[in-house]
Design a protein around this nucleic acid. Structure first.
Lengths: 197, 197
DNA sequence: TTGCTTATACAACAAATGTCGTTTATCCAT
DNA sequence: ATGGATAAACGACATTTGTTGTATAAGCAA
């Protein structure tokens, strides 16, 4: 009944949300997000349309939850974690984002050359959480709070991955990881002297 | 007639789009974006609803155009530009983003603690363009293309500004600029040795 | 001015959205 | 097992959305 899907024990709620999530996932393999109606999702999930609104305010919210969940599971499968003291540990996250974009964008999303904004927000959210957990275990990197660092890095990281993904003849994901890590990992290092002006 | 508003000379088109943009701007001062229908916008603009669809596919597209235009004008008024050789020139952009978020989020958007994704995309787009123009005039910063650098920095910059904006008891925008510039400007410097691991 | 081009107004339509109230089924604590 | 709590099914409704076709008006070039 809660709109932002909170942790719940009730098997009815878990079942319904799982059905809706799976239904949207299946439909996204067939046609782009914009061509999927809530009725379509409810039908595929064998759930009443009104029940959908008991769980999510709109289909964008469902997409966001689904993406966050699936992307997080992708990182879990790869046993990706983050240690702020180890710059190369960012590589696993970067590779995960690149591969996830390729995976979900391959069929329909990428064709329109437009990533669903809520998909982007969900991915960034997962990355931010992971970076924040790692960053908090280390000493502060200058005047910026761990939250500020985590947000900056997660947004920059995602933007870089998206830039790569939208490049017409892009290189394999493994090759771009180093470049992206190089760009964003500097946010964790102590500040060098800034150029004046 | 073109959906993505291209440069046009026809005064009828310019007039209609200006009316729609201004109408949405006025309505956003009264209630959040989600509670504004296309009919509302068309009425306020004294334009037929069907005409709206001759210019924009949906109200999100109008919002994106409006935000990009207004935010760009904000930077123009402040005479903000970017020179990749001068790290502090990022400060003007950062301050512009922070102030713009405060400006548009003050009335209705900020209350719900949720920024419209298309607003975010528009702001990032303007920042990216400005950074890209400045970055292209300089030598390449490592293996990353100017586009990659500009995208990474613009996303990171926006994320940082958003983090600041959403902080409950945030400091004045002038105070956070230095922190954000310090975080993101490193992407323009030559790569230091990375921590191993 | 004339005439061609094109943007806008307008009406109408099927479809989708978001909400509400009622009934039925499921969960879970006792 | 019983009973209270609550989730889901279902039908209905007003509203919004996106599209289509035709008529009117505005722009612009000759």
């Amino acid at each position: 009944m809660a709109h932002p899907p909170v942790e719940t024990v009730d098997p009815r709620i878990r079942r319904t949300r799982a059905l809706l999530s799976e239904a949207l996932g299946t439909l996204l393999e067939q046609r782009p997000f914009g061509e999927i109606s809530i009725q379509d999702i409810a039908d595929r999930a064998t759930v009443n349309r009104a029940t959908f609104y008991d769980h999510y305010p709109d289909k964008e919210a469902l997409l966001e939850c689904m993406v966050a969940q699936r992307f997080f599971q992708l990182l879990e499968r790869r046993k990706v974690s983050f240690d702020a003291g180890c710059a190369s540990s960012l590589g696993g996250i970067v590779l995960g984002v690149c591969d996830y974009l390729t995976e979900v964008g391959g069929s329909s999303e990428g064709a329109g050359r437009r990533l669903e904004p809520h998909l982007e927000a969900a991915v960034i959210g997962v990355v931010r959480r992971m970076i924040l957990d790692g960053a908090k275990k280390h000493s502060p990197a200058g005047t910026a709070s761990p939250e500020m660092v985590a947000t900056t890095v997660s947004w920059g990281l995602y933007g870089a991955a998206k830039e790569w993904y939208l490049t017409p003849n892009r290189c394999p994901s493994e090759e771009v990881v180093g470049t992206i890590v190089e760009l964003i990992s500097r946010a964790f290092r102590p500040a060098p002297a800034l150029a004046s002006g």
